[in-house]
């Protein structure tokens, strides 16, 4: 029977050295989603992924893939999963084809021709016969993605997949991932510490910080939470801040820039007029660029790397 929930964790917890690296995580990922698994470095993303794949046993709680417990049916479940954890795995003394062959042999029912297919998907065909130890970081990353795709998985788990890729490589991989659910009908879990990264691919987002899931919903909901701000560029920001506060306007200095909350035009006009009359040189009044990032930053307690 097909279940609609591909990944489900219940109270998933991992304690390392007395600290809950992953703390009662309840993930729920539906078939066909591209799930962005977000959080600052060290939030517990990779540990969670390791537990999803059965590489590490949870201290408590449970992982269910396709409705079945990974603790009980690990081997059968892993046949349907392709993964790339943390950094690409490879055997330096083998070439790309041989590397993929070591994996293909372990995947029942995958034909040899599939190796050429995945190599062409990640555009490594030209370098397929070179020893992998001579590959650049980006090529190794692409090989890792090829390995993950090899078994035509129903679930693809990619941990920081654009690590080490150059801008054109990032765009390429992004397009590839975005097209996957439609083309191959699979579900993707994608971890990243960059919201901007995931924001362009994900349909659903989960945010973890310090091992706890603090947000899990559609990307649109996250976008809705972003409060719009107005950035005011001027010379003496400190003085401007005290003036604004003295006159009853809300304002804050963040990262050396002055922000006031989005509001109706009249209020903004009043603020600008007041600042100009006080002799400050206002050079810019603009809506803040990517406010999604600041929502993320705010949620994760300012630890996020953006």
């Amino acid at each position: 029977m097909m279940t609609d929930i591909v990944i489900e964790t219940k109270g998933l917890t991992k304690t390392i050295g007395g600290r809950n690296v992953v703390d009662k995580l309840d993930l729920k990922i539906k078939r066909g989603e591209i799930y962005g698994f977000l959080g600052p470095n060290g939030a517990g993303k990779t540990t969670t992924i390791r537990m999803l794949l059965g590489l590490t046993k949870p201290s408590s709680g449970e992982v269910r893939l396709f409705g079945k417990s990974i603790g009980k049916e690990r081997v059968a479940l892993l046949r349907k999963v392709g993964s790339l954890v943390e950094y690409p795995s490879y055997y330096g003394h083998l070439n790309a084809i041989e590397n993929l062959e070591t994996i293909r042999l372990l995947l029942p029912g995958v034909k040899k021709s599939r190796i050429d297919e995945v190599l062409s998907i990640v555009r490594l065909t030209k370098d397929a016969k070179r020893m992998v130890k001579g590959y650049s970081l980006g090529m190794k990353q692409r090989l890792g993605i090829a390995a993950a795709l090899l078994g035509e998985p129903e679930l693809l788990i990619l941990d920081e997949p654009t690590n080490g890729l150059d801008p054109s490589g990032i765009i390429e991989i992004r397009e590839l991932i975005r097209s996957m659910p439609a083309r191959y009908g699979l579900t993707v879990l994608l971890s990243s510490h960059l919201l901007s990264e995931v924001g362009q691919m994900a349909t659903e987002v989960g945010i973890v910080t310090k091992g706890k899931l603090i947000f899990q919903d559609q990307l649109e909901v996250l976008k809705g939470r972003s409060k719009q701000q107005i950035h005011i560029g001027l010379d003496d920001r400190q003085r401007a801040l005290s003036l604004l506060h003295a006159n009853g306007f809300k304002a804050e200095l963040s990262g050396g820039s002055l922000y006031v909350p989005q509001g109706d035009d009249k209020r903004i006009a009043a603020i600008v007029r007041m600042l100009v009359q006080q002799g400050l040189e206002v050079s810019r009044v603009e809506e803040q660029g990517d406010s999604l990032e600041s929502v993320f930053l705010h949620m994760t307690g300012g630890e996020g790397e953006l």
Partner: peptide, 9 residues
């Protein structure tokens, strides 16, 4: 080069 995690997944 991380062979274990790939192999055991």
């Amino acid at each position: 080069h991380g062979g274990w995690k790939q192999l055991l997944a």
